[in-house]
């Protein structure tokens, strides 16, 4: 490529190599970061579209578009043969659990966030206590959650996992929703009270309608984290409620060498994250940093 062509290409992305040669290093650096981010996912995609012989032979770095095959994905969708992991069922289970959890979390989080906006007694201490629940290490909570769900008779059910995930997702959601609704001016509340409304009218006719987009993003993020969860499924789910993350983890022990099937399963498990990345992008950093950083 000639220098002029390179320069005009760089200009189209907002860089000026001739004026500022150091930008060449910057572009190389950004390219390296992108390569680093994409490489593991790309390699999984490549393996998921290859046969076992192709994987263990000396595999090409690049996928050959002519020989792409979706056989591995088809095998994960067994209709009659049940000996291989049944991913269609895992996906349904994960989707049910994630949806139940997201609905439950949102239904609890919106009123709770509203309570903090109204300012209940001791609210700051309660707010702080709720926030610390997000710090619970899943491994240390594995046994008590097992005992608790057995006691409540919800172990091995979709509801069991959907309810237990509240401990991580509810603090996150309360936070995100509180961050949104505290910006709504209190004069609007006053107007509703003057018209004879009460605090519930404010919630129903002011808070919820005005913060719908924010509540929706919080819902999606919570859904995603519930879909992504693994540790609690180890003791809290049974064969009928096995999730997609368990499906991937079990390849390891049961199917052992079917790496191309595992790769296909991994691609399926990442699909919601890949699709939602752009939507939840701004909120995920806020959510993961306890609201301390607004990206």
């Amino acid at each position: 490529m000639s220098t002029e062509r390179l320069e005009s290409l760089a200009k189209r992305f907002g860089f000026h190599f001739l004026e500022n040669p150091r930008q060449i290093l910057v572009v190389l650096g950004i390219g390296l970061v992108l390569l680093w981010i994409l490489l593991p996912v790309y390699w999984t995609l490549a393996i998921s579209m290859r046969t076992t012989e192709e994987i263990f032979g000396s595999p090409d770095l690049l996928l050959n578009p002519a020989s792409l095959n979706f056989e591995n994905y088809r095998i994960l969708w067994p209709v009659e043969d049940q000996q291989v992991a049944n991913f269609s069922r895992f996906i349904v289970n994960s989707a049910i659990i994630a949806t139940l959890n997201a609905v439950l979390t949102t239904v609890l989080a919106v009123p709770a966030a509203y309570a903090f906006r109204l300012g209940v007694g001791y609210s700051k201490h309660i707010f702080f206590w709720i926030l610390t629940n997000r710090m619970a290490p899943p491994a240390a909570f594995l046994l008590p959650m097992f005992l608790l769900t057995s006691e409540l008779n919800i172990i091995g059910t979709h509801w069991g996992l959907a309810i237990v995930y509240l401990i991580f997702n509810l603090p996150l959601a309360i936070w995100l929703v509180y961050g949104i609704i505290k910006a709504i001016p209190e004069e609007i509340d006053e107007a509703v009270y003057v018209d004879g409304g009460n605090d519930f009218t404010v919630l129903k006719e002011v808070i919820v309608p005005l913060s719908k987009p924010g509540i929706a993003v919080s819902f999606l993020l919570v859904w995603l984290f519930a879909w992504n969860h693994y540790a609690f499924t180890l003791m809290l789910s049974d064969d009928s409620t096995m999730t997609i993350t368990q499906g991937i983890a079990q390849f390891f022990t049961t199917v052992g060498t079917s790496w191309n099937l595992m790769a296909a399963g991994t691609m399926l498990s990442m699909l919601p994250g890949l699709v939602l990345a752009a939507i939840v992008q701004k909120h995920i950093v806020t959510g993961l940093t306890f609201g301390a950083v607004k990206a």
């Binding site: 999984t44 393996i47 994987i55 790496w259 790769a263 498990s269 994250g273 992008q281």
Partner: peptide
């Protein structure tokens, strides 16, 4: 670029492990 940067944060941690296992295993890894 920023959206791509978020990607590792949105996928299941178990799948992060699977990606790296497939990339680094002696028999399957690049």
């Amino acid at each position: 670029v920023r959206t791509l940067l978020v990607l590792p944060l949105t996928i299941p941690p178990i799948s992060v492990g699977a990606n790296w296992l497939l990339l680094l295993r002696t028999d399957t890894g690049l």
